[in-house]
Design a protein around this nucleic acid. Structure first.
Lengths: 161, 161
DNA sequence: ATTCCGTTCATACTAAAGTATGATTTAGCG
DNA sequence: CGCTAAATCATACTTTAGTATGAACGGAAT
């Protein structure tokens, strides 16, 4: 809130300066009111749009990460049509291609089911430390930072139903 | 769409007239530019806000249905046996049935996409505190304890694709 | 007008999750 | 057999998540 107020203030100040400048530039040079008014109108319509957006808080952007990775050689020849149809987004991969081990897959699945590290540890008779280690390695291999991302990504890649 | 265009046109026309009127009223009466400019500024800032809202808000509505309405009493009596049979697990539900609000659904979706509370806050122009509050309420309504569970559960209930 | 709900923000904690680093064991492989 | 990679556990932190509580505001229903 405070930050936004400051921003608003700054923008208003900037606008004021701009208006003054426009005033001198066009007014002193004996131009008509029409030009001055038009510029003002455009300026403040823009301000209004901006302010309106800020105040109503826009939604939805979707956004997805890069996915530079992937794909070395295979697959393409096998299903070019289907692959082309599915296109760029989620190429689908196997655990091996990403170097994901059995344990890691196991933990990934449990993670996807909403279990905490502690619960996964109990379920697999492992230490929670081990779970964290596996999880961390998993995140690197999936190129994510959080477990929720990992799950989301794993589904895209069809590693997980 | 067309209706909106007509409305826009009408408003613009009305504004034009108003401007002319203001111009005569204040210009001819030898008032200063400042007043004229200020009035213009206010007018068009308002226009901008309105336009901004019109342009940005429609999206939001598409994403979620309203339908607050609906059913108070019936249904229950009709299929008590079937409901009992399907029982506890995943009967599929709507946000309304669980009392999940728009904002909560919005945040649920972002959560499912793997975003952190901080990121969701930035994306929605809300405080991270607010996100946490919504998340917490969401967990109660979904009867879960963690966000990963919430996502998992929401998918079971078909609240989320 | 008053109440209720959704939304927003905040403070203050507690509890998980994640990172960094290192050590030990074991199974497979040339 | 020695090497490597997976798997295991651990310590020590830093960062997010989540809970509890309270407060304030606007819209909608009563």
């Amino acid at each position: 809130m405070k930050k936004q107020a400051i921003i608003s203030g700054a923008v208003l100040a900037l606008l004021a300066v701009t208006i003054k400048w426009v005033e001198y530039r066009y007014l002193v040079l004996t131009h008509s009111f029409e030009i001055y008014g038009a510029i003002l109108a455009i300026l403040f319509t823009g301000l209004g749009v901006w302010a309106g957006r800020k105040l109503t808080s826009p939604k939805k952007e979707i956004i997805h990460r890069e996915i530079e990775v992937v794909v070395e050689k295979p697959v393409y020849i096998t299903l070019p049509a289907a692959a082309a149809a599915t296109a760029v987004p989620h190429p689908m991969a196997s655990p091996d291609e990403l170097g994901i081990s059995k344990r890691e897959m196991e933990i990934l699945e449990l993670m996807a089911q909403g279990y905490s590290n502690q619960e996964i540890a109990e379920k697999t008779f492992l230490s929670i430390h081990t779970i964290k280690t596996h999880a961390s390695n998993l995140f690197v291999k999936l190129d994510v930072k959080r477990r929720t991302q990992a799950v989301s990504r794993a589904k895209e890649l069809k590693l997980i139903p």
